[in-house]
């Protein structure tokens, strides 16, 4: 994916001022808009639930156990006498929170390491490259399971941090590769000749080229983090006293919901996860199309 050079942007903006900016192109991208819309629905549902549900209704035994979905029970209840709908209102924001924290941490760390490694090169690069390669080659799930089992009883935020710490290597390598290519371009050479410092060049010249790409990576990392949380939780390593989509699946497994045909219990979080992945994937494609004009279908 070739990045657009600064000169190209300047040119196009000068010759066609009526063309929309980056945000405009994004909003015209149907996939992106649909993805964002689905995500917004989840956020609104989650936030709404947070506002309207009293803490007393979250505890086990608040409802009659094993109620099928219906007008009275809405999404049904689980074997512990908890409403599936109320659990979702807690699980969706928590799972999104895991994704947000882990993706922010991973992308930021990755960008910093990538820029530093790519721009400064030499020994810094050698050290960081080895570090990146190590983190890339060791399966992170292995580490996640190890760490999560060491710190059993972690909360949602701690879980997100653990996942985020392992989410930086891939963006770091990608950013590094881009920077290696970009820093040889004319405008960077000129900036360097005009006396800009390394940090200045990174932030003022290189960063703008990488932002859309980082955005796409952020969404990708978001998906991966939500998936990692679910995986760990299903293995029983999740936040025991809080609800996430993964923990919902864990409890439904613990209570053999599948065997006892309490389908609403396990199907709800599974379908939600699928919808969530779909939404984030659409956003990711949207980003990709905007940053890579050759993929654009509209706008």
């Amino acid at each position: 994916m070739a990045a657009i050079s600064a000169s190209e942007i300047v040119e196009s903006e000068a010759s066609a001022p009526q063309q929309p900016g980056f945000g405009g192109i994004l909003l015209r991208n149907r996939k992106f808009v649909i993805g964002v819309a689905i995500l917004l629905i989840f956020i609104i549902l989650g936030a709404g639930g947070e506002l309207f549900v009293g803490s007393g209704q979250r505890a086990s035994g608040s409802f009659q156990p094993r109620l099928a979905p219906g007008p009275g029970g809405l999404l049904g209840t689980d074997s512990l006498g908890r409403s599936v709908a109320i659990q979702m209102s807690e699980a969706i924001p928590n799972s999104l929170q895991v994704g947000l924290i882990a993706a922010t941490l991973g992308t930021t760390l990755g960008a910093i390491v990538g820029f530093v490694s790519g721009y400064f090169g030499r020994s810094v690069d050698s050290v960081l490259r080895v570090l990146i390669d190590i983190f890339l080659s060791v399966p992170s799930l292995l580490f996640l399971i190890l760490i999560a089992s060491l710190f059993k009883g972690v909360g949602v935020q701690a879980m997100a941090l653990i996942i985020g710490i392992f989410a930086w290597a891939w963006p770091a390598r990608q950013v590094r590769a881009q920077v290696l290519s970009l820093k040889e371009r004319g405008f960077v050479q000129i900036a360097r000749l005009s006396g800009m410092s390394g940090l200045e060049i990174i932030f003022r010249e290189l960063m703008p080229h990488m932002l859309p790409w980082l955005g796409a990576n952020f969404v990708n990392a978001f998906i991966a983090a939500v998936l990692a949380e679910s995986g760990l939780s299903i293995l029983g390593l999740g936040p025991q006293r809080e609800m996430t989509l993964g923990m919902m699946i864990y409890w439904s497994l613990n209570y053999s919901a599948f065997l006892q045909n309490l389908w609403w219990w396990w199907l709800t979080p599974v379908l939600t996860l699928i919808a969530l992945f779909l939404a984030l994937y659409l956003i990711h494609i949207g980003f990709d199309e905007v940053t890579n004009p050759r993929l654009r279908t509209e706008g």
């Binding site: 007393g56 505890a59 086990s60 035994g61 512990l80 029983g236 025991q240 613990n254 209570y255």
Partner: peptide, 14 residues
Amino acid sequence: EMRVSTVLADQLEA
């Protein structure tokens, strides 16, 4: 134990 812990912890916290 995992099951009991959830119900008991909910009871005590309530």
